[in-house]
Amino acid sequence: MKILNIFPITVPLLAVLLLAACTDQSQEQSQEQSNEQSAAEDPALLAREALDQAQAQYDASRQAGHVWARTPVLLKSATEALAAGDFSGAISAADQATRLADASLTQAQAEQTAWLHRFPKMP
């Protein structure tokens, strides 16, 4: 009986809450999209992203014990370029560092078994 009494209030209330939640979600989504768009357009953020990626790949190659000498040099250049506001220079150096670190990781992977065949064997 009591349920029936509150029914006329509950239904509109739930509807309003649902509407508010949906509106909020769509606002959040549009905010996220707008953030992503601005990130895609912001060279500083793009440079930061490229540098983070290069750093992560460098760390992985260090973990594998196969760091190539040029990688940290390029990482340093990218960091310095970013600090100096040269975003395109930072992205270029960071991308090169990423490519080198990727290649050194491929080398580390290949060497896991390839090394076994490089020693003379007893006839």
Partner: peptide, 19 residues
């Protein structure tokens, strides 16, 4: 393993030269 593993951008192992 270290001695026979290729490393670096030139892709050389110690064994490349010394074996």
């Amino acid at each position: 393993r270290f001695y026979a593993s290729r490393r670096g951008q030139l892709n050389f192992a110690c064994t490349s030269c010394h074996v």
